[in-house]
Structures are given as C-alpha cells and as structure tokens.
Amino acid sequence: MTRAEAMALIGRYYAAFNAGDAAGMLDCVAEDVEHRVNEGGIRRGRAKFAEFCSHMGVSYREELKDMVIFASDDGARGAAEFVVHGEYLQTDPGLPEAKGQRYILPAGGFFELRDGKIARVTTFYNLNDWIAQVSA
C-alpha cells in the first residue's frame, strides 16, 4: 500500500464515521481488526468492532473536524489528528449521566494497515477533559 492509499483508506474510515455509516467503517477494517480504545480494553475482530459502533451510535452523536491524516512512506502505518464535536445522548455505564451535553475534545487515532484494510486502530483522547465537560 502506498502512502496515498493509506491516507485515502483512513480518510474513508473517518468519512464513514462522520456520516454515521457503521457499514462503511466496517468495510475499511480487516476481519481480524484490533480495536484499542482510550481507557478501555482491546476488541478483536469485526464482530466486536461492529458492536462498539452500534453502541457509540446510540450513546453519542459525534462529528470529527479539523482532520489531519498522516501515513508512513510504505503505507503500513498511519495516524490522524482531529477535534471531536459531540453530544452525549445516552448514559454509558460508569460515566456521568447523559443529558444531551455537548463537548469539544481534541483526539487522535493510530493505525496499522495491511492488505488494503485497517488491521489495528488505537484511539486517544483526554477522558478527564471529556468528563469535566459533560459534568459541568
């Protein structure tokens, strides 16, 4: 995979995210995708990733803005930096109560790419910042 192909794949993944298109996101990931989310466990496989996408679609409405995508020369690794503009819709267990709070949160993602698909995605954001925003 070239750098341009890697950047295009990451771009398609996040465009699907912004469109609320879980099927489009799933189309970008490998069958054995490893999903590492900030402050959470590791989900392995498309089925677990699909469950996560479904949950997120119910609990949060988010749009990623100011996206900057990077990729290694060989297209095997990539990253993206962005700002999450969101609304907390349904309470997540162990987190503050959802009341439609809005938040703006810098975040990023790191990728391993293989055979034209995303093999690993790791997402980072400041959970304490998010909690402070939705608790205010």
Rank of each mutant, 00 (worst) to 15 (best):
V29Y: 07
V58G: 02
R44H: 13
F17R: 05
D32L: 00
A30V: 08
A50Q: 15
A22D: 08
H35W: 11
H35T: 12
S54D: 14
G24Y: 02
N38D: 11
K65C: 06
N18C: 12
V29W: 04
D27C: 01
E39M: 03
A47Q: 14
L64H: 10
D66T: 06
G24A: 11
S72T: 15
D73Q: 09
D27L: 01
S54T: 15
M25E: 11
E51P: 12
R43N: 10
A47P: 05
A50G: 08
M25N: 01
D32I: 02
A22W: 02
L64Y: 09
E39A: 04
M67G: 02
V33T: 08
A19V: 00
A47S: 05
C28I: 02
K48M: 13
A19S: 11
F17N: 04
R44V: 09
D73E: 15
G20K: 07
H55L: 12
A47W: 08
A50P: 05
R36Q: 06
C53T: 01
F70L: 14
R43W: 14
E34R: 14
H35C: 04
G40E: 12
D21N: 12
R36L: 01
D32K: 03
N18A: 07
E31Y: 00
A22Q: 05
G24S: 07
H35F: 15
K65H: 08
D32M: 01
M56T: 11
A23E: 10
F49A: 09
R46I: 04
F70S: 08
D66I: 06
K65S: 13
D32E: 15
K48S: 12
D73P: 08
C53Y: 06
E31V: 07
M67T: 07
A22P: 13
F70W: 12
I69Y: 13
F70K: 10
F70M: 09
N38V: 12
G40V: 05
D66K: 15
E51M: 08
D21F: 10
K48H: 12
A71K: 09
M67P: 04
S59A: 14
D73I: 01
N18R: 06
A47C: 03
E39S: 00
G41M: 03
H55D: 02
G41A: 05
R61E: 15
F49I: 01
L26M: 13
L64C: 03
G41R: 02
E62Q: 15
K48P: 04
F49M: 15
N18G: 08
A19D: 10
V68Y: 05
R61Y: 09
M67N: 01
K65Q: 14
A50E: 06
E63M: 05
E34N: 00
G45C: 10
V68G: 07
S72K: 12
S72E: 02
H55Y: 09
V33W: 03
F49V: 03
A50T: 04
E39L: 00
G24C: 06
G24V: 07
G20S: 12
H55K: 09
V37E: 07
Y60T: 06
A23Q: 13
E31A: 15
